[in-house]
Design a protein around this nucleic acid. Structure first.
Ligand SMILES: [Zn+2]
Ligand SMILES: [Zn+2]
Ligand SMILES: [Zn+2]
Ligand SMILES: [Zn+2]
Lengths: 162, 162
DNA sequence: AACGCGCATGTAATATCATAACGTTCCGGG
DNA sequence: CCCGGAACGTTATGATATTACATGCGCGTT
């Protein structure tokens, strides 16, 4: 059940898409022996509502509306947890967070950010990562973490523009 | 005179390295018909002092010490100008800026950031960019801008750790 | 049961990064 | 000379992120 990486840019059964991600998240947490507590779970649900990236304060606002704490650390802690567990990613270019669409898979994600509709997709990044490792290794640099973030036009917006 | 991309991680004649970058910057600005004013030039010199990335407020502090304005826009404007002209790059992962080591060359830079000594190098990113374009194109996404930033260990720090 | 401990949660306060809005100066073209 | 745009400066504010500390809860030990 490898997800379509471009789903973010197409109509799809998103309720199912989010539900799958959520149940995978539960399995992953159980497996790792960590707790997907109510705030954390709710934060993930919030990120899963759309294929976009949300700022910590956006998430915080929704969490607060649901009766959770109103202070920044509430959101940052939940989000940090999700990122640590590989259930969400931080998009540095946007100072924002997005739910991982393929949690559990080892992956070197490449983010594609549509500048028109703000959708964010996670493309398979193995080839990019290989190229990066090659470039780094050639000058003796050992990569431990990398972020690859591209801004551009998604298929739908591309069509609309043409 | 293609610069060694790994110079940032090695001992080298850095005075010459910085002087070259500065004179290339002057040529580029003259060529583009834009003005490398005193603040802008000084900001570039500050970035060129080390192969590291500096936050806007770090640059601002040094500019202020040299008699320029003391308010954030002073630094941000100078830095934005340098980035626009391709004389500096913004490292989003660090919320910081670094001087371009090969200004003028069309380049799709890949940044290598040493987590131990904070040095930042700019590696040739053509291969990475090709892989990225391929991944994006396969799902119909057209990349307009990309940032590739890797954190890891530079050759020197790698050796020190082993 | 009582205790001690780790972890999750909450709050207040503060730090860090970035931009908006506006006035002044400088300088080249009409 | 006068105008207009670009650069620079300031004040104020907005947006993002962290530090420090208090409280409550589950859980194994005594
Ligand atoms: Zn979906
Ligand atoms: Zn789009
Ligand atoms: Zn140098
Ligand atoms: Zn190093």
């Amino acid at each position: 059940m490898t997800a379509d990486p471009s789903a973010a840019f197409h109509d799809h059964d998103h309720a199912a898409c989010a539900a799958t991600a959520l149940s995978r998240a539960e399995a992953i947490c159980a497996d790792a022996g960590v707790r997907l507590t109510p705030v954390r779970r709710r934060a993930l649900e919030i990120l899963l509502e759309e294929h976009r990236a949300l700022g910590a304060y956006d998430v915080l606002e929704k969490l607060a509306a649901d009766g959770f704490g109103k202070q920044p650390p509430v959101a940052y802690r939940a989000l940090d947890f999700l990122v640590e567990q590989g259930l969400a990613h931080r998009i540095r270019r946007l100072n924002a967070f997005t739910a991982c669409t393929t949690p559990g898979d080892a992956h070197a994600p490449v983010f594609l950010i549509c500048s028109t509709c703000d959708a964010v997709a996670e493309a398979p990044g193995a080839a990019v990562r290989d190229a990066l490792d090659g470039a780094a290794e050639s000058i003796g640099f050992a990569v431990t973490r990398a972020s690859v973030e591209a801004v551009g036009l998604c298929p739908a917006c591309r069509e609309a523009t043409s």
